[in-house]
Design a protein around this nucleic acid. Structure first.
Length: 423
RNA sequence: GGAGAAGUGCCAGAGUGGUCGAAUGGGCCUGAUUCGAAAUCAGGUGUGCCUUCACGGGCACCGGGGGUUCGAAUCCCUCCUUCUCCGCCA
């Protein structure tokens, strides 16, 4: 969430930035600032009364000690009256803080100045396009047919044992999956990201920390009995590793990575979007996460995008980079680059990575700070990116590298798969 | 899952109703000493909020939440976590 300081001190710019998202923030800001003013006023009142009470209590103690019992008793009834008043004001103060928090929680992040205006994915800016689309002359089979033909994925078995969106990988399909995970992790490791294997279920505090709660409550699988959520991305446990911490300046940047399965309810999806591997309830992903000093976060973001591009190049997939427009930008992000691979048979782009800078939006919720040069705690900037999400990579690999003799495995991947063709 | 013990600052550890945001030791920072270092000595060393031009002042926080009391780190309730024992188990 945004900090109160930003709302107070930078209101005009904030309102303008949020209008890019198509949000008229004026009403919300007015409400929050009005609450803030009342809260401060109330706090002053409460604090003063409490100071009085504390002082009286001290005196009562002294009076009892020096044996002036009657005087002490008199003071005591006096303070009792004060207590009533404090209690009422205190409750009011608490409710104001809660309302303010709730309102603040509903405000999305402020888009970076480079974010294009726009309403939908059609307005995203294509930053670059790389690699040649294969010429398959209408012969191209979609990945679900190839997966079936070479017995790589059993979608129906998944339906039987779980439901739609839970594919079963088998044989070389399973090996390919494992190879990709290993490949991505090795590359992240080489780029300086420390590997973690985090829990796949997280508590509500963690969900709030990264912003999935309350914004995307319905998108996560919830184990009600234990009040735990299945992670929709490794971002959640990895970023929460530093929740509530104050880091030393020298510790930054912190670079983490991890492979986890990801679980998403994907309520409301339908049609060609969910065909084959396009959109699943469970999928595998390697995630990279960074904690940065604010002045370095945007350079870092570029570095992360470049890392992902390197992976796609080595997989010999045609891809493009998008700068998301304000309308398509996630609630918590300030700037996001999406990377999409070309699906030769479906003849469309598939998103395989989303790399974002959250600035201090998540850090504020997480209360993750570092001690700056002045020795004061300051919110870090958090970033993360998929590097990479597996299913659509597999889809693109199958579709783009298909040929009469089978599916060619890119050279960089062969030492991980142990085979160079799927036939 | 059952029984018991415990959770205090960066760490160790005292404190069991009053002046405790918290003794003491270690660590760390600053200064003195030194050619320099070690050792020694002196001082400093949490976070959030409110208030103040500033100096400063106030409030809250001793696992989380709630309660008793004029007053709680200290008593009570509850939840969480850790440790010990028992049970179960990949």
């Amino acid at each position: 969430m945004l900090t109160l300081q930003v709302l107070r001190n930078d209101r005009e710019a904030l309102e303008k930035a949020l209008s890019k998202r198509g949000i008229n923030a004026a009403t919300m800001l007015n409400r929050i600032l009005a609450l803030d003013e009342e809260r401060r006023h109330t706090q002053k009142e409460v604090d003063d009364l409490k100071a009085k009470q504390n002082e009286a209590s001290r005196e009562i103690g002294d009076l009892f000690k020096s044996g002036k019992k009657e005087e002490a008793e008199a003071r005591r009834t006096e303070v009792s009256a004060l207590k009533e008043k404090i209690h009422v004001l205190d409750e009011h103060q608490k409710s104001l803080v809660q309302q303010q928090e709730a309102a603040l929680l509903e405000m999305p992040n402020r888009p970076h100045e480079s974010v294009p205006t726009g309403h939908s994915e059609a307005d995203n800016e294509v930053v670059s396009e790389e690699g040649d689309k294969p010429q398959l002359h209408g012969e191209a089979k979609p990945h679900w047919e190839l997966a079936d033909q070479y017995k790589l994925i059993d979608f129906e078995a998944g339906v039987k044992i779980s439901g739609a969106g839970f594919p079963v990988y088998r044989g070389k399909g399973a090996k390919l999956q494992r190879a990709l995970i290993q490949f991505f992790l090795d590359r992240a490791d080489a780029a300086g990201y420390e590997e973690f294997i985090p829990p796949h279920l997280v508590n509500p505090d963690s969900g709030r920390g990264t912003g999935q709660l309350p914004d995307k409550e319905g998108q996560m699988y919830h184990c009600v009995e234990d009040d735990l959520y299945l992670i929709p991305t490794a971002e959640v446990p990895l970023t929460n590793l530093y929740r509530g911490d104050i880091l030393a300046e020298e510790e930054l940047p912190v670079q983490l990575c991890g492979y986890t399965p990801c679980f998403r309810r994907e309520a409301g999806s339908y049609g060609k979007d969910v065909r084959g591997l396009n959109r699943l309830h469970q999928f595998d992903k390697v995630e990279i996460v960074r904690f940065e000093k604010p002045e370095n976060s945007y350079a870092s973001l570029d570095g992360m995008v470049e890392h992902v591009r390197g992976l796609l190049r080595d997989l010999e997939l045609p891809f493009r980079t998008l700068r998301l427009c304000a309308g398509d930008l996630g609630f918590t992000a300030a700037l996001t680059f999406d990377l999409e691979v070309w699906s030769a048979a479906q003849e469309r782009w598939l998103e395989v990575s989303s790399v974002s800078n959250f600035e201090s939006f998540q850090a504020n919720r997480l209360q993750c700070r570092f001690r700056n040069a002045a020795g004061k705690p300051e919110l870090v900037h958090t970033l993360n990116g998929s590097a990479l999400a597996l299913p659509r990579i597999v889809a693109a690999l199958l579709e783009n590298h298909q040929g009469p003799d089978g599916i060619r495995i890119p050279a960089a991947l062969q030492r991980y798969t142990g085979f160079d063709t799927i036939s």
